[in-house]
Design a protein around this nucleic acid. Structure first.
Lengths: 151, 151
DNA sequence: CGTGAAAAACTAGAGTG
DNA sequence: CACTCTAGTTTTTCACG
């Protein structure tokens, strides 16, 4: 599915500021407020827009420690198994299956090193996990588009 | 800076749905709508909340190909050099310096494989880059908290 | 899609503990 | 100082053309 130009401009406006009024966005793209709302509603129904969220400074919420965990899984582990297993961790901000040696890359936020270690141990103990390899984030350089901050 | 419990619950509510009304959030945390608004305003002033954004299915916006690029940099490359160098790429959603062999991990979104390859070549050609190693995302399993989608 | 009216939400100000 | 209450304003929402 692709969006037409109008939908894309609306999404772009919302990405910059999701609390702008429909009338305001409409003035920018050349539509009335109800027309903008109708399109946003439709985009939500179609799953193009999956929600609205807030961009937060991670440190302020106490998520001081961030890392990436490469997961090596047992044979015959399905992506859905991994997803279900990881969904239970609030510390997991994102996870994807990937090409290369590892099966998945998991982005983890923790309050401190001890917390990170504890999460890592629990993940490594999941039945579908063979082993893990992780790197810690030293400093986040760039974090655009509201990228991954736990709540 | 740390937040008190009330602020944290408000932020958590907004992270789930940034368009919930103040009154609605207030009912959950035990405050009136104006009280919630005042706290949100203050959090924005303090920089704890940096904005509101929309969660979008990347594929719908034409970002079909995602990958992680490990960067190995020349000696004496500062984090700030890396940041400045990568900030010019709209395809770069996030970048962090990390522990381990590589110096930085960069998350890249591209429209397709050819586009991804082109971006990778340009990044590898940056003067501060020695070599890169990249993995492609096969399927995104989990993407919470508005995690990294280009606009 | 736009218009216009009703309902809801926002927000500034005043008053209270 | 932070809250609630109140009231005016703006925004959202929906029916209709």
């Amino acid at each position: 599915m692709r969006l037409n130009e109008l939908d894309e401009r609306i999404v772009r406006a919302l990405a910059e500021d999701a609390r702008r009024s429909y009338a305001d966005i409409g003035a920018e793209v050349g539509l009335s407020a109800p027309a903008v709302k109708r399109r946003v509603d439709r985009l939500r129904e179609q799953g193009a827009i999956t929600g609205f969220t807030v961009r937060v400074d991670p440190a302020v919420l106490g998520w001081e420690t961030e890392g990436f965990v490469e997961m090596y899984c047992r044979h015959k582990t399905s992506p859905e198994d991994i997803r279900r297993g990881l969904a239970r961790y609030p510390e997991v901000a994102s996870a994807s299956t990937v090409t290369g040696d590892a099966d998945a890359i998991v982005q983890v936020f923790a309050s401190d090193m001890r917390h990170f270690e504890r999460v890592l141990e629990r993940i490594a103990g999941e039945p579908f996990v063979e082993r893990t390899r992780s790197v810690l984030v030293l400093s986040p350089l760039l974090r655009r588009y509201g990228s991954g901050t736990p709540a």
